[in-house]
Simulated scan of single mutants.
Amino acid sequence: MGNTVSADANVNIKATTNNLNPPPECPMHNKGSKEQQETKKVSECPVQHGTGSDINPYNMMPPANQQPSPDQPFPLPTQRQVSTIPRAMPDGSTEFWVYPSQQMFWNAMLRKGWRWKDEDIKPKDMDDIIRIHNANNEQAWQEVLKWEALHAKECGHPRLKSFGGKATQYSPRARIRSWLGYELPFDRHDWIVDRCGKEVRYIIDYYDGGELDNKYQFALLDVRPAIDNFENVWDRMKVMYMRYRYELIGNKGGTKLTN
Rank of each mutant, 00 (worst) to 15 (best):
P46Y: 04
V98R: 00
S171C: 10
G113L: 05
Q142H: 08
A174Q: 05
N65Q: 12
T78E: 09
R115T: 13
K153E: 03
P77S: 08
S171A: 14
V98W: 00
G164E: 09
Q66C: 08
R111H: 13
D54E: 10
I129G: 11
Q139L: 03
V42Y: 08
Q72Y: 10
Q67Y: 04
D120I: 07
P46A: 03
G50L: 02
P63L: 02
K166I: 13
P63A: 09
F74I: 07
V98E: 01
M60T: 07
R80K: 08
F74R: 01
G113R: 08
R111T: 14
T78N: 07
P63R: 03
S53H: 09
Q169M: 12
G92R: 01
Q67F: 03
G164V: 12
K124P: 04
V98D: 01
P158H: 04
A167G: 14
K161R: 13
N136W: 00
G50Y: 09
Q81I: 11
Q81T: 13
Q102N: 03
D118K: 15
R159E: 07
D71P: 04
P158K: 03
H133E: 11
F96V: 00
E44V: 07
F96N: 01
S69Q: 13
K161W: 07
N56H: 05
M60V: 04
R131H: 14
E143G: 03
W114V: 12
E143A: 08
G52K: 07
D125R: 10
Q103C: 02
P100T: 02
K146R: 11
R111A: 15
F74M: 01
A167M: 12
S53K: 14
K166M: 14
P70N: 07
G50S: 12
L76E: 03
M126W: 15
S101E: 00
R173F: 08
P70R: 10
S83G: 15
G50I: 02
G50Q: 09
P90H: 05
R87G: 04
A174D: 06
Q142N: 11
K124R: 11
F96Y: 10
M104F: 00
E44K: 05
S83C: 12
N59M: 06
E44S: 11
V47I: 12
A167P: 10
P100K: 00
T51H: 10
K124C: 05
I85S: 10
L110K: 14
I132P: 04
N107V: 08
R131M: 10
A174C: 06
I85K: 08
R111N: 15
K161V: 06
D127E: 15
T168L: 13
P57M: 02
N65C: 09
D54M: 03
G50E: 11
H151S: 07
S93V: 03
S83N: 10
K153A: 05
Q48H: 11
N56W: 02
P68T: 06
K117N: 11
G165M: 11
I85N: 08
I85P: 10
H133I: 01
Q139T: 04
T94V: 10
M126F: 13
T168R: 13
F74W: 01
A152H: 06
C45F: 00
Y99K: 01
I130L: 13
P75V: 04
Y58H: 03
E44Q: 06
R131K: 15
F74E: 06
L150T: 10
